[in-house]
Write a protein that binds this DNA or RNA. Structure first.
Lengths: 100, 100
DNA sequence: TGAACATGTGAATACCTATTCAGATGTTTT
DNA sequence: AAAACATCTGAATAGGTATTCACATGTTCA
């Protein structure tokens, strides 16, 4: 069973993935493994500031984690569950798309 | 690789799951298999109208599908991918919660 | 120490969206 | 046909949020 509180937290999780910028950031990380803010901004084609705001939300929710190296901060997906979630979703979408 | 268009569609998918009402509806369906609008409204504790609006979004996105039986319309999760996605997410959340 | 670089922060705006209300559609029952 | 029921629809409002701008923080290198 899923309690109301649990449903709220699940919705919170999904809502974080439910933004094009954040989704692109996460899939970029899924592919690359690790990236710094500036490179993520270039890849996703938004400003550094927007990326920073987006990453903060993902960091707070423990969807991504960080590693500092000099003045750069490298971001990566937090754990295997997140990777599986992104992977499964992408697969789902591609199979659904096939049927068109 | 994930194209920009694909990322947009993935975000669209996640955004639909990223609302407490819709999340509760989906997890109710994951458990029960099939439910009519009125029972869903009772389970999730919102008005029939709000449920109807929510279900329309999920239906349009092919996340749920329907079956008419008399004057009632039964909703169910559209496919196995959706069920896996919900299941995996719930598992993720529960494991993360353990670490507190 | 100071300049250049990488990232983070806070406030403001503009857009999006969930819910509500009133009423419409379609279905069954008598 | 009319009443009762189940669901849907459209418009309006209220609340949330992504982006931008200006600036702050922290780090390296000369």
């Amino acid at each position: 069973m899923v309690t109301m509180e649990e449903a709220t937290r699940l919705a919170d999780l999904f809502r974080l993935l439910g933004d094009p910028t954040r989704a692109r950031l996460l899939y970029a990380l899924l592919e690359a493994g690790e990236m710094c803010v500036h490179d993520l901004a270039a890849e996703v084609e938004v400003t550094d500031t927007a990326v920073s705001h987006a990453l903060r939300l993902l960091r707070t929710a423990e969807i991504v984690s960080t590693r500092r190296a000099g003045r750069m901060i490298y971001y990566r997906l937090a754990d295997a569950h997140v990777r599986m979630l992104l992977d499964l979703s992408r697969e789902h979408l591609r199979e659904v798309s096939d049927g068109r």
